[in-house]
Amino acid sequence: MKAVVRGFRGVATYLGSLMGADAYRKYLEHFTSSGHAGPAMTEREFWRDRMDRQDSNPQGRCC
C-alpha cells in the first residue's frame, strides 16, 4: 500500500512541475543562490509578475 501512495505522490509531483506549480519555490532557490540584494518577491507578487509577463509576451500557450 505504501508503494502505491509513494507512486501516486511521485506522479502528482511530476504533473505539478509540468503545470508550473513549483515555480515560486524554484524562483526562491534561484534568488538565494544568485546572491541578489534586497528582499525576494512575495508569492503573490511572483505570480502576478509571471502572469503579466505571459500576457504581454504570449508564447505557445493554448489559451
Rank of each mutant, 00 (worst) to 15 (best):
G60Y: 12
C62I: 14
G60D: 15
R61W: 12
H36C: 06
C63L: 08
D55N: 13
R44Q: 13
Y27A: 07
M51V: 06
A37G: 15
G60E: 09
C63I: 13
N57K: 13
E29P: 03
V4N: 06
M41Q: 03
C62L: 14
M1F: 11
C62Q: 15
G38S: 10
T32R: 14
R53C: 10
A40W: 00
R9C: 13
G16T: 08
R50G: 07
K26V: 14
G60T: 05
Y27G: 03
R50A: 14
R6L: 09
A40P: 00
H36A: 09
L28P: 00
E43L: 06
L18S: 02
G35K: 02
S34M: 10
R48P: 09
R44W: 13
A21D: 05
V5R: 06
V5W: 06
R53M: 11
A23H: 00
G7N: 01
G20W: 02
G16V: 12
G7Y: 02
D55F: 08
A3R: 05
S34P: 06
W47I: 04
R9N: 07
G38Y: 04
P39A: 08
Y14V: 00
A37V: 15
P58M: 01
P58N: 02
G7K: 01
M1P: 02
E43N: 07
V4L: 15
T13C: 05
P39N: 15
T42S: 08
C62Y: 15
S33H: 06
A37Q: 12
S33D: 09
Q54P: 11
L15Y: 01
M19C: 15
T42G: 03
R9V: 13
T13G: 00
P58G: 00
Y24W: 05
P39I: 13
G16N: 02
H30T: 10
G20T: 03
D49E: 14
H36P: 04
V5G: 07
Y14P: 01
G38K: 13
E29M: 07
M51P: 05
M51E: 05
K2E: 14
R48C: 14
R9F: 09
P39T: 15
G10W: 01
R44V: 14
M51F: 08
E45G: 03
K2R: 08
